[in-house]
Nucleic acid binder design. Structure first.
Length: 722
DNA sequence: GAGCACTGC
């Protein structure tokens, strides 16, 4: 099997692959591809420790693996465990990823390496897409999806091993999952030991006490669960936190394969990092050897302004030095435009990619040799007292700076220019604050309650959110009717809300809408509110975009405007695409979106969410009716669901949010930006330059009270039932 | 007068 011996060093890898490239011409391409894959697998740093790793997993119920970039841990470890017999008895190895793309691409790669069809032995499962079957033994999935699975199968009984990958990113889902897995692991070992004891007793004297029987039935339901093996994989060098959390679990380190990256710092702090960025881009372009540049900026506005400035400065250079192309990338950019960053620059040209932190982890761009890191990031934080989120620009952490510089060493040696002095680097936080400590917890709490965790304040989080934050979210859930006076999930409202993959306030709106006879409209509304920016207005076509938006705009506000967009897209599809293939359909819809300045990725996502949620509410038996032209009915329902987000106009034209008393401004993207009605409900409050409220609908002041009374009535009803 | 990045049976 190991022909030519196992070689790990980078040099050998290059020699081997070069040799096989030449041989390709003579042999069957499929065969040579197989050979190449086999050689690649053997060359990975992790390959030489296959047996050791399998032993470690066999001997430790929990294992922390620190694997540097390029170690091959994500693709190889599940295969090693499969080969070592961890899937006997039809059990599955589950690997979670924070992002959908990663789950899909890794699963495809591993299926190919195993030489099996995707969805058979190797598969993936993400929202809207399940490519697994009864024979799937290696299953890649998003961490959010595994959390949802736990609602149905609290012991996660089909899994023998669960691998939590990219745990260092510390997303909310990862953190909740870690706490949950810790409990599942405990419960499964207990059930296993109890079963063993009971079986021993049976063998010895054939009698069982009632207590034993109770445990046997309750915990094992007639079968014993084998202990759950847990593997936490992280790319951060510090495994201590994970190890301590899992009771001093063993940690192993796997070397990576990265090319060296030289780090440069400035001598002094830069007063204007945008200007410093500009100077550095041009300096690299004029003085360094060929290779593309990746620049990390904080947001769309900054990216667009740097792009403009680069173009201006280039005009001042001699003609021969102007061969520099800019390519922006950020999440809200339509996919067609995002694709431009992946296209190679024409011969003689250098490409400079201006990116948000989307390029830190989510997308990998080939050809990068230089990274410019001004050292800032736009981050979300949450103030539980004000109930307000904010998006503010803050310095990166050390780990983030490291991740960014690593982007220059994917294909060869690179350089990273940090636009701050080395002394400043030392002052940075080691790692970014986990998301769970800076977001609204209503959703997390609802999920935990549904999983049977009643004492949220006592839940064993790796890093516990503040008491204030937990209490605020409990209060919000109570006000929405999801929790009873005893802080238990209410029946049926709380259980229904937990079942819906939506923000609790949206779930509540859907349940109310079935009583207001406008569930059809509310379904569309929450689907559209659940996705990122439906409208896309590039700076250079702002006027055109505004005109396009007017066609959909509804005087009542943004919610019904979104409904109009959704319905218009539906009508368009029904008229134009009868009998066309799915691909043609997609294409023609993308064209329609472009003409109407709508982000087709967002609309597509909203359509997926809509069809999923419609299935959910139908299953719950909610009444799917339309209010037709009776806008008042819809607005009353909005008022009743979003009463926590009501605001009143003040004499100066600003608004006061009723729940928190804060002064807020209508976001300029709202159709009501100029109309300024007296009484409104809003979808979200986010502080950027101002405290902005987004997605707003005008309501009658009376509606708000009627809504509140309706709400109290239903709450009262619920109490009586309880 | 303006939108970091992810995710959900």
């Amino acid at each position: 099997m190991a022909q030519g011996g196992l070689r790990n060093s980078t040099d050998n890898r290059h020699k081997l692959s070069a040799k096989f490239t030449i041989d390709d011409r003579k042999v069957d391409p499929a065969f040579s591809r197989k050979q190449k894959i086999a050689e690649h697998r053997k060359s990975l740093p992790i390959a030489s420790v296959e047996k050791r790793l399998a032993d470690e997993v066999r001997n430790n119920d929990t294992l922390i693996i620190v694997g540097e970039t390029g170690s091959g841990k994500t693709t190889q470890l599940p295969q090693f465990l499969f080969n070592a017999g961890f899937c006997r008895d039809g059990k599955t190895i589950g690997i979670t990823q924070p992002r959908r793309v990663a789950a899909v691409t890794v699963a495809k790669r591993v299926a190919e390496e195993c030489g099996v069809e995707l969805g058979q032995r190797v598969g993936y499962s993400i929202r809207f897409e399940d490519v697994t079957s009864g024979s799937t033994r290696i299953k890649y999935m998003t961490d959010g999806l595994l959390l949802r699975e736990a609602l149905l199968d609290p012991y996660l009984s089909r899994y023998s091993v669960i691998i939590v990958d990219e745990a260092h990113e510390r997303t909310v889902h990862t953190d909740v999952l870690l706490g949950l897995l810790k409990n599942v692991q405990k419960a499964r070992s207990k059930s296993f030991n109890d079963c063993l004891n009971i079986e021993k007793k049976k063998e010895n004297n054939g009698t069982l006490s009632d207590k034993d029987n109770g445990i046997f039935l309750k915990q094992c339901q007639g079968r014993k669960f084998p202990p759950l093996k847990l593997i936490i994989m992280s790319a951060s060098l510090d495994a201590r936190g994970f190890s301590e959390y899992f009771g001093g679990a063993r940690a192993v380190h796997i070397q990576g394969r990265q090319f060296p990256v030289d780090i440069f710092y400035t001598h002094h702090a830069e007063p204007d990092y945008v200007d410093a960025t500009l100077v550095t881009i041009l300096q690299i372009h004029l003085e360094e050897r060929p290779g593309d540049i990746l620049v990390f900026l904080t947001g769309q506005e900054e990216i667009e302004s740097v792009e403009r400035l680069v173009k201006e400065r280039l005009q001042q250079l001699p003609e021969g030095s102007r061969k520099l192309l800019t390519a922006p990338i950020f999440s809200a950019l339509p996919s067609e435009k995002q694709m431009r960053v992946f296209a190679a620059a024409p011969a003689g040209f250098r490409k400079v990619i201006l990116a948000t932190n989307i390029a830190e982890t989510s997308v990998t761009i080939p050809g990068i040799r230089y990274v410019i890191d001004p050292g800032f990031v736009k981050a979300r934080s949450y103030d539980p007292v004000k109930g307000m989120e904010s998006l503010i620009i803050v310095p990166t952490s050390k780990a983030q700076a490291l991740q960014r510089s690593g982007r220059a060493g994917r294909e060869g040696p690179g350089k990273c220019f940090r636009l701050y002095p080395e002394s400043e680097f030392e002052k940075l936080e080691d790692s970014t604050k986990p998301e769970i400590k800076r977001c609204n917890l209503a959703n997390v709490i609802l999920q935990l309650k549904a999983l049977g965790v009643n004492d949220i304040l006592g839940f064993d989080f790796m890093e516990k959110p503040s008491r204030a934050s937990i209490v605020k979210s409990l209060e919000q859930l109570f006000l929405l009717g999801a929790l009873t006076d005893e802080c238990k999930l209410s029946d049926p409202v709380g259980h229904q809300m937990a079942q819906l993959p939506l923000d609790p306030i949206y779930s509540r709106a859907l349940i109310l809408a079935s009583q207001f006879n406008c569930l059809e409209e509310m379904l569309i509304t929450v689907a559209m509110l659940s996705v990122e920016s439906i409208f896309y207005a590039p700076r250079e076509k702002l006027e055109e975009a505004r005109t396009a938006m007017k066609c959909f705009s509804c005087p009542e506000g943004d919610h019904l405007t979104l409904v109009n967009v959704y319905r218009a897209s539906n009508e368009f599809l029904e008229k134009r695409t009868v009998g066309l293939s799915k691909e043609k359909n997609e294409k023609i819809l993308r064209k329609w979106c472009k003409e109407n300045f709508i982000n087709s990725r967002s609309l597509r996502h909203a359509r997926d969410v809509h069809s999923q949620i419609r299935g959910n509410v139908e299953q719950m038996g909610l009444r799917l009716a339309s209010c037709g032209d009776d806008m008042l009915q819809f607005c009353r329902c909005l008022a009743a669901s979003f009463f926590l987000n009501a605001a009143l106009k003040q004499p100066e034209g600003t608004y006061r949010a009723l729940a928190s008393g804060q002064v807020v401004h209508i976001h300029p993207s709202s159709v009501l930006f100029q109309a300024k009605p007296e009484c409104i409900v809003f979808n979200e409050l986010v502080q950027t330059n101002h405290k902005y409220i987004r997605n707003i609908t005008k309501i009658d002041y009376l509606c708000l009270w009627v809504g509140l009374i309706d709400f109290r009535f239903t709450l009262g009803e619920k109490r009586i039932e309880n």
